[in-house]
Amino acid sequence: MDAILPTVAEELLREIKRNYQETSQITDELLLGLKFIFGPTALYALDLVDQRSVSHVTSPSGRSTFQVVGSSGKMYTCFASCHYCSCPAFSFSVLRKNDNMLCKHILAIYLSQAMGLCQELTVTDKQMCDILFPKED
């Protein structure tokens, strides 16, 4: 049987989007639902949304990706077509320990999308390349 949690999370996010579009608000119930599903991640993701930390980067080739300014000010790149984030929490909590579906950055991306709070940014293909394959410093 398929995992149920992603479907639940998806539906919850849709619900949030609907709710926000209709009322420009998110009900307490949905917020608590978010916290229930995502645990403390939800709180920090909402904080990132409050800070407008998410930008959606697109390039003429049609590639797109997300960049999230973490609470420390560090920039994390998240892919648009699968769950990936360059933050340490993702590799530890999501990949290794497997006790979280997402890191706060990816959740913040979903929430920002649901609320239309992504900053849109257009870059050249070359720049997109640099984002997706950053050179080691």
Partner: peptide, 14 residues
């Protein structure tokens, strides 16, 4: 159960 990372939530396709 391990969850797949390859599936993005489609919150826009409502």
């Amino acid at each position: 159960k391990k969850l797949p990372l390859s599936i993005m939530f489609k919150i826009n396709e409502t």
